[in-house]
Amino acid sequence: MMVPDLAEGRRPYRATQPAAAEVNAKLSVQNLDAWYGATHVVKKVSMAIPARQITAVIGPSGCGKSTFVRCLNRMHECIPGARMDGRVLLDGVDIYAGDIDPVLVRRRVGMVFQKPNPFPMMSIRDNVLAGLTLTGVRPRGGEADALVERALRGAALWDEVKDSLGKRGVSLSGGQQQRLCIARALAVEPEVLLMDEPCSALDPIATTRIEDLMHSLRETYTIVIVTHNMQQAARVSQKTAFFYTGDLIEFSDTDTIFTSPRNKRTEDYITGKFG
């Protein structure tokens, strides 16, 4: 469970001049490889993730899409035996450079997981504030109240829980729990939000609410969503990346991918020939 200093990832910091094509890129991924032990799960992936848009990552299970997004906030390395190589630039800064603290990267690149995971021993309010209290920051009463309200409003949960902030986070429904987790991520004020199949454990109504929420979040945040649901990708995203066995097969505007994919495998996948 150690956070290893990845020998491969340790390079002296140097400012990188953004290439012309990446001027608008919030995250620029360059030649990213990732392994679990001896298994090569992400292979030489390069892509530029645009700011304040929703980028969907689709592909059959086991294609490396989850691992790929976990590399974007250095969560991949938290798993024993995990390893990566390549560069990920956040606003032009390589987050894998030797003097970069992964902990601080994660405060700028938030994450929401597949299964809602509010902290069971905390109230709704404490869950929202967890990002601060965990790191030893104790916001004063008024500020904390304002932050809790802002984050919960941001996650479209405020109206449902404003009278029961002291209740346990785990007492909420699955969909509410997931929005609580989004609120918890927003309270840290990240710039990028990674969502790893955030609706796969939810019912259709809760899923719709999360998708609506994503539309409004897009104005402020850069969002990357992993999904196994192609309709969801088509509904919410502006850009779509198709992964297959660790390779990035195709990456372009969502409209293009779903109407005129260039690659045969992309077409087969979105038309349901496999998956």
Binding site: A15, L90, D99, V105, R108, L132, V137
Partner: peptide, 24 residues
């Protein structure tokens, strides 16, 4: 809002660098 997360402009290099004290 705690001092750690307020008043942040665009990402600058120092922002994500290891803080010596915390790291130690």
């Amino acid at each position: 809002m705690g001092g750690e997360t307020t008043g942040r402009g665009r990402l600058d290099v120092a922002d994500m660098r290891r803080r010596v004290g915390a790291h130690a």
